[in-house]
């Protein structure tokens, strides 16, 4: 059987890639994708812990998270579309009329 640490390290790398994507990318949609990566890294953690300890609660949490993430992306893309219609851009840098 594959050791638990492989899954956890994989999830940690995925989380780090997502975090890097949010901090470095200026595009709104890429940010949304990076957030999906981070959420799924946490999901992998939950499933790993659930399956190695034989406790099903973690798997239930993952199903809930998937539903919540879907709702979040649906609203998120609507907001991006709205921002594009009004400001003609979804680049995070250019959405900066308000500062300090």
């Amino acid at each position: 059987m594959i050791g638990m640490e492989f899954f956890l390290v994989f999830a940690a790398i995925l989380f780090a890639i997502g975090l890097y994507g949010i901090l470095s990318s200026k595009r709104g949609l890429v940010t949304l994708m990076s957030i999906e990566l981070m959420l799924n890294a946490a999901n992998i953690n939950f499933i790993t812990f659930a399956s190695y300890s034989g406790n099903a609660a973690g798997q239930v949490f993952v199903i809930m998270t998937i539903a919540v993430a879907a709702a979040e992306v649906a609203v998120g893309i609507a907001l991006m579309l709205n921002a594009y219609k009004i400001n003609k851009t979804t680049e995070v840098d250019e959405l900066s009329t308000m500062r300090w």
Binding site: G28, F49, G58, G76, L79, N82, A83, I86, N87
Partner: peptide, 23 residues
């Protein structure tokens, strides 16, 4: 619309951090 996009990005980042912590 600008505020909503900023709120969305930062809010989603915070929920990802929370979820990883909970896991």
């Amino acid at each position: 619309s600008e505020a909503a996009v900023k709120y969305l990005i930062i809010g989603a980042l915070s929920s990802a951090l929370t979820l990883y912590g909970m896991s």
